[in-house]
Amino acid sequence: MEWNHQQFPPVDQVGIQERVARFITRSLKKETKSKALRLALSMIDLTTLEGKDTPGKIEQVCHKALHPCDDIQGLPLVAAVCVYPIYVSTAKKCLENSSVKVASVATGFPSGNVPLNLKIEETLYAVDHGADEIDMVISRGEFLIGNYNFVYDEIAAIKAACGAARLKVILETGELSTLDNVRKASELAIAAGADFIKTSTGKIQPAATMPVTLVMLETIKDHFLRTNRLVGMKPAGGISTSKVALQYLVMLHETLGERWMTNEWFRFGASSLANDIVLQLGKERRGVYFSKNYVSSD
């Protein structure tokens, strides 16, 4: 199949912004809020993607994934821990026998500017060491010059290399500049076999925003209406408070509905969101906020 720029439906930026403004005024309180926060916690891909990561840091993050806050009973575990390929085996060892998945970024993250054979090799390396999920980046340079076939073929090749691992495709929307481009990239990724589409690496500003996420959710919805196939969504970067996370869940519910309201089809890529949710849930139990000193910062 040949891709060209005319194949993509247009997006109206003003309309998207107006729709988003409606989501953020919905109110969730008390029991619904508490359950929604627990759901949000279960959707987190706890992430550490730094040059200065160490095996020790990875172990800490994995411990946190397994014990978000032992003080509060019945808390769900996060969905996954997201790391660089060399730490996949460390994470895998820590998370064995738990429901928490190991996700690995791959394909020359965050820029993606390496040849395809190396991208495939990196993906295979991560999968061989036990990654359950691969977070790849698209080649934004090729996308922006209109080489859609290149982008499509690359995603399809990585999907093949993933085998049983689920593939999340990072569009890095902060570099795509328009919502029309976000729509195009989402269409390409979904058509090429993405199990999830993801906004950002977290290395570029702006990272996840509600308008961008809405465009991606709409692409998922349209794909579902055409093919009945579900695709997951992962906004990543910049979602650090419970309040914002709940606004994303409102948007998810009103755009895609009940079937996506699970960590099988929706994730938050975040490092500090889990802490804020724990603080909020702790407040519900105690009636007051406790100090951040009681929550580990990793």
Binding site: L28, T32, H253
Partner: peptide, 13 residues
């Protein structure tokens, strides 16, 4: 985790 609760907005009059 499955979403096993009814998603309902809370009155905010």
């Amino acid at each position: 985790m499955k979403n096993n609760f009814e998603w309902k907005y809370s009155p905010a009059p």
